[in-house]
Write a protein that binds this DNA or RNA. Structure first.
Lengths: 204, 204, 204, 204
DNA sequence: TATGAATGAGGATTCATTCAT
DNA sequence: AATGAATGAATCCTCATTCAT
């Protein structure tokens, strides 16, 4: 009988439960008993598979980041043309945040915590830089190289600002509006860069 | 003998210590003993003046918001012209966040916590709407009324995204760069709105 | 009203309870709940006064050592003549161990633990050397200086061996017998040293 | 297929690992996972072969005692003359304790624990009496029968006191010195007994 | 025979809160 | 007004034990 895969399954169960619990109660309210209970497992298993509560939290953050990365790559590959690819990245980041209304809260909780935990901080920075690097890669085909960094940073801030503020509002209508909002702002940024540099752009 | 003002002074001491402690250790690590100890007072005083730990936290968040509001009003009044007033608001929000490198962390901690605490949530929303409302007020003189809401929201997102991402990076050079970044993005947004609406804008 | 002395009293209560509990259940069975419960206090007070369980244990060991030291000094001062002083020291060590039948068990538990705890180890060594030094001091008047160290060490071993083995037997008759046993052995050691060195000794 | 002997081998592995772990970390720090891990086996095997953690500990103590007994018998048989046989017993007890510097710690840990465990206590007492009985047997040829018990007890205390104190000091030079110390004290005891009884002794 | 997954009780520790002074 | 002693619930973690494979 396949005892194989039990470890992966248990880890996934615990991570899923951690996400749900943190989303509902925040990091401060997410005790191991709540998490393990929601997963239908015992608290001891956390130590068994993750050594520590911190181990579970780190794995959880990493899981979230991996999922976001996978989503972004998948959308990116389907997109045709540089502007579409750029928007695919934006879309991946936004849709992922808003897939579940709790997701923004989880993301935010980890962001806040990462400022006081080396392990989480490192994971967080990897993602920070990955988003910037992806954006820059797309922008190289769209604006003058002198503008790439600035515009990439602006778009990254827009994305993070949008989901951050949307955690305060929530709701589906807001989700749709916020996507549109970012897209229009991105267009504005690209247009101004193109105009300023007289660079011939493709139509969006 | 003027024992008047003792209450105000003690409250201020505790709030200041709360901000410093949360900035350094996060909300999860800020125990009453740490806060009171840093203020040079006893833990009992917290109950005396704020009834509760939550009472202290709420007062602390309110204090931060009030300070930000005061700063914004002060800068706003000195500014001449609609675009300058708009930038004054942006500046107020950014400079305040970056006054102290710990400040972003405090702000972030409260934002995360407010998603799980009604009291904090309400305070947070007031500020959320105040920023939007201020931005909208300025924009009415700059862009077509149909665009006001959208641009205001975009700028608000930019502001929050900038300080949020800057909590991960820190440093003075980043602070200066991020101000410039927002200003340029604001210009791009305004220009695109003006062009699109053929509305004659003033020069920035 | 005298709030003074509360701290000393509470510490004494907890230390006393720690000794009783360790004597009854061993270090492995002495939980904070048992200790605090026996003292009629809450577990939280341990942290309040000793910071830690280890803090309590260290204070307890120190307390035992101090008491033994005081006892030894008191008996030593009453004794007349070098041989009597030597026996006063032996008596102090033995009578203290056997005052309470649990005491040997406590002493033994700490000795075993001190091999794995730096803090306890240091305290333990201080006592180890103090006993030797006291014995040497007495012996300088009784045997040739070349023999002092050896005889001191022998007597120290006898003392420790006696109480160690008596932990396995217990009972009052054994206590009395073991005192006599050490005294006779001490006499044998002194006699052999005196004879070997042809040193004129006083009558015991 | 010779699966015979597997049981004995596994038991020996676990016992050996238990001794090493207890020596290093003490009884309080010796978890089954540490012990089994050091033996390269799984925790489940402990239950399989010893039913219990206590079963393993009891077997371990018994193993130590058996080894000591074997060593003593072996040395005893090689010795010629009553005084040499007496010293053979002393040597067996001391050299065994000091074979490994961790050994005293293990012995001490079990001694402390045996005061709170019936099973271990019984094993401990068997050894206690065996040493006494061996010593008495030798002494019957050396001192008056009225002195046998007293001298036997004294020598036993010396032996235990020496290894007990040596656990605090350790080091090879101390080992050698402590053997000499006991031997000289034994001689002093024998001489005083012989003199007191005018019994003609053989030369050692 | 052997593994290691899973459990859950028990321990130390932290902390907000209460209250006598 | 102010202290800090005292509490006890809550949390994380460790660990012996059980059991299915």
């Amino acid at each position: 009988m396949p005892k194989v895969g039990v470890e992966q399954k248990r880890k996934a169960q615990l991570i899923e439960a951690a996400i749900a619990t943190i989303g509902e109660l925040g990091l401060g309210g997410a005790s191991l008993q709540m998490i393990a209970g929601r997963a239908g497992l015992s608290t001891g298993l956390v130590a068994h598979y993750f050594r520590d509560k911190n181990g579970l939290l780190e794995a959880t953050l990493r899981h979230i980041m991996d999922q976001l990365g996978t989503e972004a790559v998948s959308r990116y590959k389907k997109a045709r043309g540089p502007r579409a690819r750029l928007k695919a990245i934006v879309d991946a980041n936004l849709s992922y945040q808003q897939l579940d209304s709790e997701f923004g809260a989880v993301w935010l909780a980890f962001w806040a915590e990462s400022l006081h935990s080396d392990r989480l901080y490192r994971v967080q920075r990897v993602n920070h830089h990955r988003l910037l690097s992806n954006l820059r890669h797309c922008l190289r085909d769209l604006v003058a190289s002198a503008e790439v960094d600035r515009i990439a940073e602006s778009i990254a801030c827009l994305i993070d600002g949008v989901w951050l503020r949307s955690t305060l509002v929530g709701g589906d209508s807001h989700s749709r509006r916020s996507r549109a909002l970012v897209m229009e702002a991105v267009d504005a940024l690209l247009d101004s860069a193109e105009l300023g540099n007289a660079k011939p752009g493709e139509s969006p």
